[in-house]
Amino acid sequence: MLDAVVTNKVGGGGSLAYTYVSQKTGDAHHIAIAQAGLNTNHITGRSPLHYSDLTPLAFVGSEPVALAVRADSPYRTLKDFVEQMRKDPASLSISVGSTRGAINHFTIARLAKAAGMDPRQLKILVFGGGAESVTNLLGGHIDAMVQAVNNAIPHHKAGKMRILGLSTAKRSPGIPDAPTFREQGFDAVMEGWTIFVGPRGMSPAQVAYWESTFQKTVNHDLWKQYLEANSWEWGYRNSHETLAYLKKDYEQSKALLTELGLAK
């Protein structure tokens, strides 16, 4: 086990944390957890920081995104929900958490595209974060939320929410009764990826050290237990593979954000 000091740099969809680490050139003692905002913040102009300003170290897994409604919603299935979206997209208020043009927004946009719709017609709402989306959905103030699945799981299991679909290619072992979009006929697969990054200027030996550390971590029983408890998807990519993954994700994100009218 490594001794580590956790420093919270909250804000800007992760931009404050990424900027902090980017300023530690060559210092392998400073790394950050990065998610989709690393790319989308740059594409939308919320941050000048590009993924090339950092050193990708490892991809360590992905979190499914869930489309959920209240248990008493008239939309019993994803098909019901999509039919209403097609009929009158503005009639459904859908929360995507705190940020437009991020992974949750991408997920519902891809679902709309898979259903033959223009995603710009959707009524998208943002709040302070996932917790506020949950509160507004349970309170009956919105029709649906599209959030990281861990926001919906406890309420789904308690019978207060119903997960209509997951963004993964296959069902999650943690919630086997929640179907995927794909199995219901909508090819809308999205990965809520998590990677680790370091500053630019890291030596090959420093990168190799962190690759080895994270490869051991993702194969540890405690990590696998964490993934199962939170319905994450296991995965590992080394530094070179993670860089290639980031490049592809950036291109795909830019295309979708341009279509949504959010790219700068």
Rank of each mutant, 00 (worst) to 15 (best):
A115K: 05
A115V: 06
Q121P: 04
L122I: 00
L125E: 11
F127P: 02
G128V: 06
E132L: 10
T135E: 14
N136K: 12
L137Q: 07
H141E: 12
A144K: 05
V146P: 01
N150Q: 14
N151I: 01
N151K: 05
A152L: 07
I153S: 10
H156A: 15
K157Y: 03
A158C: 07
A158K: 11
R162A: 06
L164R: 08
T168I: 01
S172R: 05
D177T: 05
D187N: 07
V189A: 05
G192C: 07
T194Q: 15
R200L: 10
V207A: 15
Y209M: 15
S212W: 02
S212L: 03
S212F: 01
Q215A: 11
T217Y: 15
N219W: 00
N219C: 08
N219I: 02
L222V: 10
L222F: 10
K224D: 09
L227D: 04
S231R: 13
W232L: 02
E233G: 02
E233T: 01
W234T: 00
Y236V: 01
R237S: 07
R237M: 11
N238C: 12
Y245S: 03
L246H: 02
D249H: 07
D249G: 00
Q252L: 11
Q252H: 03
S253T: 04
S253Q: 08
